[in-house]
Design a binder for these strands. Structure first.
Lengths: 334, 334
DNA sequence: AAACAAAATGTAAACGTTTACATTTTTATT
DNA sequence: AATAAAAATGTAAACGTTTACATTTTGTTT
């Protein structure tokens, strides 16, 4: 008995007024409010969120789903979300999908059972079926998608302009006097990778720069198969002098591969990645990349969700613009 | 009305038996159990965890506190925790402290309000005051500390033998024929860094190897101040041929610094870090390090907590043994 | 000071489960 | 077949809040 009831007894007030102090404060007089807060402090009152959630239907919990927490992009997003959301007294509960649809379903199910007030998520690469997402939408739980969206209508999204990012990256290579470009493309099943490829193609076409695209055999970046193929590629096309990789991790592997092939970066070949991962500034040479404004993405998503929690607004779509980060890997003078 | 009551009505059973089907299943006959499950599927029943939590006092939520999620060590731990805990039907809720005591307090407070069944945490570097932790302990909520522990008695801990890790790392340098060693030490306020330093000192003493320890001025690794000091250090002591850095990120900075000083790693100087971060295999040369068995640490912590949830056991302390990861930075012949 | 409106407080039911306790049904024992 | 024991089910209160509605208090206007 260390609850609201206790405070009511101490102060001689009713449950209702005490409760109101902690919620809709405007309806209670300053004196009683003070009395209640004093008593609350005295008994070290901690509201029972479960009880409040049950009665009010609002859990004050926001569910966040990311593919992987150990990924600087997503953890920056989480930081952005936290910053916005914790000020409003919400708790966030994070689940990882590890890019598996099954885990995504499980996470959403847990969220519904926990009665989360809203969901922020980036769908997994593997996700094809959207019935579980539809279930969330049907349950009237507001949901905002960031970075990756499902192919559904009328949803809230905060996305990066991947096409533009790739375009900028490619133009940067061209500006640095590259004359024969290569794009290492990510899985064409993933729409953001497709957009990056398209941005690359648009830029080379615009500038009439000779270019080629290489698709990896294996979706895992660092397989022997992939590296062997790449090695062959470079040997067959020695005139390549600019590479745009679909992601920073891939770019780092290229950095290492080219180094073993005694190809100097950036003198002989310039290289740019995508994502501006936390390790991209640490390599040697440091890696030029495209920054995704990840923490801003988190903040915007969270704000959009909070807005939806207040009152159902019509579906909104925000598109962020990526930024070029110039580092050593594209910076060599000849 | 899509709850247990609905199912009771459909099946003609009482609330109690229906509830029992979803909990203490042994007390209900196979036939009725089947009937209930069928009805549950029919109406797509989703238990309301808030109600269950309120009544039973068990939230089925475990709170996890880490300094930073964007850190391969801690996210590996989280993965380990998830693996163990999700099988048992628990949800985990993750909070970051960003190494700030204030955020740690806030997180623990939220956890108590949410009535978490247990807490898994690594205290922040900044934490000096333990009253908030004591509050959790007093509230009878089981708690397990991993990697970093507060200076409190009678607590559950899962720790790494940092002393041993440092010892192994140092011995490895000596085995690779280093004759003058340097340790770049982390803040002496943090006990794990102190242990690493002690391990280093023990190893050089044992092998009678000349050695020195450098303490950074600024706790942030990559400040100009620090780099300048290090540069001076190397110029004053050109005979140094083996370095043990207190962490991998620091080691990478050294890698870059030495490279600009035209000092070849590993031919001239051998370098080893600590932590086996996700980027350590990606640098050039790749970085030798000490692996912390992070995901095992997560699993053990989670198991210990689950055990405590079942029945209050007496405080346990587990110590994990780190493993040497040999890579190029210590592997040069000559 | 009467009449009314606005502000503050109170009463009691409700949220959806779990669970102690009571009752009924089934099974086993004689 | 009677009895006891075990298994299955039922009854109803309780968990700690919130909130619709009712009531009382305070302030304002005439």
């Amino acid at each position: 008995m260390a609850g609201i009831k206790e405070i009511a007894k101490i102060t001689g007030l009713s449950l209702a007024t005490v409760s109101r102090v902690f919620n809709d404060s405007s309806l209670v007089s300053p004196k009683t409010r003070e009395k209640v807060l004093k008593a609350a402090k005295e008994i070290d009152y901690r509201p029972n969120m479960m009880a409040a959630a049950l009665r009010s239907g609002k859990s004050k919990i926001i569910g966040v789903i990311v593919p992987e927490v150990n990924n600087s992009f997503f953890s920056d997003i989480i930081n952005g979300i936290e910053r916005v959301v914790s000020d409003s007294g919400f708790n966030i509960i994070i689940s990882q999908t590890h890019e598996q649809q099954e885990k995504e379903n499980a996470a959403l199910n847990s969220f519904l059972k926990l009665n989360v007030d809203g969901v922020l998520m980036s769908i997994s690469k593997e996700t094809k079926d959207h019935t579980h997402i539809q279930k969330v939408i049907d349950s009237q739980t507001p949901i905002v998608f960031f970075d990756r969206r499902p192919k559904l209508e009328l949803i809230n999204t905060v996305l990066l302009n991947n096409y533009l990012g790739a375009y900028i990256a490619t133009e940067h290579l061209i500006n640095m006097n590259c004359e024969k470009l290569l794009h290492i493309a990510g899985s064409s099943d993933v729409s953001i990778f497709e957009e990056r490829k398209n941005g690359f193609l648009a830029a080379v076409q615009k500038h009439k720069t000779p270019a080629m695209v290489h698709h990896l055999q294996d979706s895992k970046t660092q397989t022997k198969e992939n590296l062997k193929n790449l090695k062959n590629l470079f040997e067959e096309h020695p005139t390549i002098d600019g590479i745009f990789a679909y992601g920073d991790e891939m770019a780092i592997h290229l950095l290492n591969l080219l180094s073993t092939l005694k190809v100097n970066i950036p003198k002989k070949v310039k290289l740019i990645g995508f994502g501006n991962a936390n390790f991209s500034g640490l390599t040697q040479p440091s890696l030029s990349s495209i920054d995704q404004e990840s923490s801003l993405m988190g903040e915007l998503s969270a704000n959009l969700l909070l807005q939806n929690l207040k009152k159902k607004t019509k579906p909104t779509s925000k598109i962020l613009s990526p930024k070029l980060i110039k580092r050593e890997s594209t910076n060599g003078s000849d």
